[in-house]
């Protein structure tokens, strides 16, 4: 029994999986509506943007940095893609491509500034985040773009039974990220720099290069999240991204990422997003004031970090 226990807790996300399963069971019993096709669709759709947002921060934690500009960057990309399609009449796919590129470039700027100035990335992205938000509001005057191509909006609302079309994007991204971090040289080098940047440098790697690459990838993922949010809402709201900060940190951390860098879990992050989604869904079904979700998220982060600490001691890590 003890051996089984210790073997199970060795898998970082095993606890999360158990909690998710328990939550689903509990919700099914308490609220028959939970498994209804429409509620399942709403639930799954709520995960899509969150997953990309979480991955965007997870990448930064992997390289041992943080990105506070994810929300502002996603918001800026959202109005860029909306503006291109609405005001400029650019077709859907080119508009998406340009918007993604803009996100990647914004990420590069974050990375370049961090490396070049030597200022803590936390401060750099706090500043650029404010700048991105400023550009966003300057362009839009806080007025959304509503006239989006029908195919784009249809994709955002479409579903196959309870499965939203949108879910395809984060699922593909999840698989790509797993491959990227476990099997590509660039991905391994990012984690090496996050794990011990000094050692990585003495091995002949360039920590600066890894940090810039991670910022670019983070920007790309935040951009994808912004575009997905537009598709889901059916309009490009300048306020998109304003509430992403907490979940961007909560999910990777609950998923087992180390704040010291170099250790992340894509499966863990995915399960954490699912768990947070379940909590939000439960609040709706049980008609609890949604503002309490924010409180619960905070408590959950603390609990997760504390549990990870306990697990680390138990397993004999660190």
């Amino acid at each position: 029994m003890n051996e089984l226990f210790s073997r199970v807790i060795r898998v970082q996300w095993s606890g999360l999986l158990a909690v998710c399963i328990l939550a689903v069971l509990a919700l099914t019993i308490v609220s028959p509506n939970f498994l209804s096709e429409y509620n399942a669709f709403v639930f799954l759709r709520s995960l899509c943007v969150s997953l990309l947002v979480a991955y965007s921060q997870m990448v930064m934690l992997g390289v041992g940095q943080m990105n506070l500009s994810i929300g502002a960057l996603g918001g800026l990309v959202a109005v860029i893609v909306g503006g291109l399609m609405d005001a400029w009449g650019v077709p859907t796919l080119p508009a998406i491509a340009i918007a993604l590129a803009a996100g990647g470039v914004a990420g590069l700027v974050n990375g370049w500034l961090t490396v070049r100035t030597g200022i803590n990335g936390f401060i750099v992205t706090l500043a650029t985040g404010s700048a991105f938000a400023g550009i966003n509001l300057g362009i839009t005057k806080a007025i959304p773009f509503y006239n989006l191509p029908a195919d784009f909006v249809a994709f955002g609302n479409g579903r196959l039974g309870p499965i939203p079309n949108l879910l395809i994007v984060p699922l593909i991204v999840s698989v790509l990220l797993v491959v990227f971090f476990s099997r590509t040289v660039t991905g391994r080098h990012m984690l090496a720099v996050g794990g011990n940047s000094h050692a990585a440098e003495l091995s002949g790697l360039s920590p600066n290069k890894a940090i810039i690459e991670a910022h670019a990838l983070s920007g790309l993922l935040a951009a994808a999240a912004g575009i997905l949010a537009v598709a889901q809402l059916g309009s490009a709201q300048p306020s998109i991204g304003a509430d992403w900060l907490i979940i961007s940190f909560a999910a990777p951390i609950i998923g087992g990422a180390s704040l010291a860098g170099g250790s992340i879990s894509i499966t863990g992050t995915l399960l954490a997003v699912v768990l947070i989604g379940l909590i939000q869904n439960a609040m709706v079904l049980l008609q609890v004031d949604p503002y309490w979700v924010t409180f619960l998220l905070g408590a959950l982060i603390l609990a997760a970090v504390w549990l990870n600490r306990y697990r680390a001691v138990r397993v004999g890590e660190d």
Partner: peptide, 18 residues
């Protein structure tokens, strides 16, 4: 120590020329 603690021995040895 100048090694990446969470990487395998093999990967640490070959890190800069995977």
């Amino acid at each position: 120590r100048n090694l990446i603690p969470r990487f395998s021995v093999a990967e640490n040895l070959m890190l800069e020329r995977l």
